[in-house]
Amino acid sequence: MTAAPRRVELRIRRLELDSSEAGGVSRAALCAAVEAELSLLLGPAPAAPATPTPADSDVTVLARRIARAVHRELRVGEGAS
């Protein structure tokens, strides 16, 4: 028997960034990149981002940091170490 796919819905109402970190990053691009990074961390099969970004772009680096922080906090909430 296979397990049903897990659905995770996360709403981030507000994200405050230091202006030095944001560096002119597009809000829409950052949202898409964070979503893609979180799907890599949370899901068995990553979803392709709507708008691909280069692996070393400022958006991807920032999104990766945000996604890892969110993921870490979700795991703490589950009791994981």
Rank of each mutant, 00 (worst) to 15 (best):
A55L: 14
A29Y: 05
A36N: 01
P46W: 11
C31E: 08
V34S: 03
V76A: 03
V34E: 12
I12D: 06
L42K: 02
L17A: 14
S19K: 08
D56W: 09
I66T: 06
M1D: 07
R14I: 00
L38E: 00
L42H: 05
P44W: 12
P52V: 13
V70Q: 04
P5T: 11
A69R: 04
C31A: 13
A4I: 00
R11N: 15
P54F: 04
S39H: 00
E37Y: 02
T51L: 14
P46I: 11
A69L: 11
E9C: 12
A4F: 00
L30M: 06
A50L: 14
V70I: 13
V59N: 04
R64D: 07
D58G: 01
V34C: 02
V34M: 07
A67I: 00
V61A: 13
E9V: 15
R13M: 07
A29C: 11
A33N: 08
L38N: 00
D18C: 04
D56V: 13
R75V: 03
P54E: 15
P52Q: 14
E9S: 13
A33E: 08
A33D: 01
V25I: 15
A32E: 11
H71G: 13
R27S: 12
R68V: 10
E73V: 05
L42E: 14
V8E: 04
S20C: 02
E73N: 07
V8Y: 06
T53M: 09
H71L: 08
R11L: 11
L74G: 04
A55T: 09
S26R: 11
L15V: 07
L17Y: 04
D56G: 08
L10Q: 06
L38Y: 00
V59Q: 07
V25C: 08
A45D: 11
E78Y: 01
V34I: 12
A36E: 01
L38M: 00
R13Q: 12
A36H: 03
A69D: 10
C31G: 11
T2S: 11
A36D: 05
E78L: 08
A63L: 01
E21L: 13
S39Q: 00
A29L: 08
R14P: 03
A48G: 14
H71A: 15
R64G: 04
S26W: 09
A32V: 10
A28K: 12
L74A: 03
R13W: 04
R7A: 06
S26V: 05
E73H: 07
A33T: 06
L15G: 01
T53V: 14
R68Q: 10
S81Y: 06
D58V: 01
E73D: 15
A48E: 15
S39G: 07
R64H: 02
D56A: 15
G77T: 00
R65W: 09
G79Q: 06
R7H: 05
H71N: 14
L40D: 09
A36V: 04
P44V: 05
A55M: 10
V61I: 03
D58T: 02
G23M: 09
